[in-house]
Amino acid sequence: MTKTVNNKAWFLVLPVFLIVAFSAVLPLMTVVNYSVQDTFGNNQFFWNGVGWFQELLDPTTDLGGRFFDSLWRTLLFSAIILMIEVPLGILVALSMPREGWTVALSLVLMALPLLIPWNVVGTIWQVFARGDIGLLGWVVNHLGIDYNYTGDPLDAWITIVVMDVWHWTSLVALLCYAGLKSIPDAYYQAARIDGASRWAVFRTIQLPKMRRVLLIAVLLRFMDSFMIYTEPFVLTGGGPGNATTFLSIDLVKLALGQFDLGKAAAMSLVYNLIILAICWVFYTIMTNVDAQKERVEA
């Protein structure tokens, strides 16, 4: 669809621009302000230049070491859950019933975890995985496996990953399902006439048609897992030790726990820049895919 050039459209966008700028730009200015100052309490601030940034980006300092540790943990976490949730989501989408009342039932049940407040998600798993009163922890322990997510770092990681898979796989599945639903029956009929195998149908019809929604799914899942805070905070509080202290948890500890405003602000900015860079890569890929699609259709 061709769009007309009309700069008056800015008037329609202006309210959104203002309200988002109010919530985004003003606070960000505060952060920038803090990031170049030091404080000794009593609301006295001193100019510190790029000192915090130098410390933050140097892994040999306390702050830098802490920052890079949480950064790698967060990246590892995002990588793991993408590797599990994307294939599992596709599998579930392919397994969705095609018609009848089971479709609505499956959709509603699948969407349910997505609408549970994040700290309740943490609470549910905190209870569910406990060795004494939780079904999962109890069963695993009675199978003879020593499992304790509050004491063992590996167990804590497994629990958080399983919790995230429980929480978010449905998002990927629903997105893929939407992509699959948009494939006309004619495609399948053509594949049948050609005698295509199930794998070939998936590879040449279903996967390409899902590409766009999959891109959105990967983008949303990556971003949301990269800034995950509430669920692991409730479940493990970042522990045992620092084993599950992700970037957001570390940041909140620094800012609201220790009130180390300068360090926290510098960390926020670097964190935000990383997000911005990744976001830009995704956005570019997405617009390219769209442009390709438009060329093909035209």
């Binding site: 606070p27 971003m223 935000n272």
Partner: peptide
């Protein structure tokens, strides 16, 4: 419906706010 000055940049900027970690904004808010 329209193309206008800076539309793509504005859309991208909006998108980045959806992706911004709330932890960053907790204190300034």
């Amino acid at each position: 419906r329209y193309r206008f000055l800076g539309d793509k940049h504005l859309f991208f900027w909006l998108l980045t706010n959806r992706m911004a970690p709330p932890a960053v904004f907790a204190l300034p808010f």
